[in-house]
Design a protein around this nucleic acid. Structure first.
Lengths: 105, 105
DNA sequence: TATATATGCAACTTTTAAGTTGCGCAAATT
DNA sequence: AATTTGCGCAACTTAAAAGTTGCATATATA
């Protein structure tokens, strides 16, 4: 089943992969070396990340370098936007509370 | 098993719950009315959200109002921060490309 | 050309998550 | 006091995801 970006990042291994290739594009084998699991297991995670376009393949001979797709990650940022106002409000309320306490002294 | 915030938001129903209570605190029954599933199913989602502290209960008689915990949601924002620089870079590169094309005309 | 390496795909097993039903308890209502 | 309502917990079923092993294919290298 095709997953969305929320499901894609819900797995710790996939988050680790994203963190790695955000710094530098890597091949599946290079990624697998970093994790304590089979290459095929990592390969399945790559497939998930690729299907939801969080990573992009670049063929180079028989090797495939996977690049991080920052644009797709921004979808996450957009989803968060609906809550951003919310937490700014809560912090303003905290500020007000602190100010009130200060004034009472 | 206790889930982390990434797993918590990977479910569409839980994201919908968060979007609802970010606007206004609701009781489990009020939430269940909004979804086409049993109250108990919704209650399980509430449990997940509560365990990872994305929501906070406020008892009022026999009713429990669940509030959105914006502070916890910020953890995503912090996680995203590691990639933000990355996508800003990619956009700068796109800008440069567009500028180059423009100058060639 | 034979062999080693890099990768993806398919079948299978195991684990985990989602949803249902049934129950118990405490607060409200009659 | 009896009943209804709001909620959580536990057991169960079903569905899906994670990981394994084995195989096929294409590109390198000896």
């Amino acid at each position: 089943m095709k997953k969305d970006i929320f499901q894609a990042i819900s797995d710790p291994t996939r988050r680790a992969i994203l963190a790695l290739i955000a710094i530098q594009a890597l091949t599946p084998n290079a990624m697998a070396d970093k994790f304590d699991m089979s290459r095929q297991a990592v390969s399945k995670h790559i497939k998930v990340l690729h299907e939801c376009e969080l990573i992009k393949p670049e063929q180079s001979g028989r090797e495939i370098y996977y690049h991080f797709n920052a644009k797709k990650m921004q979808e996450f940022d957009h989803w968060l936007a609906q809550f951003r106002q919310n937490w700014e409000t809560q912090f303003n309320q905290l500020d007000q509370l602190l100010t009130t306490i200060k004034e009472q002294k």
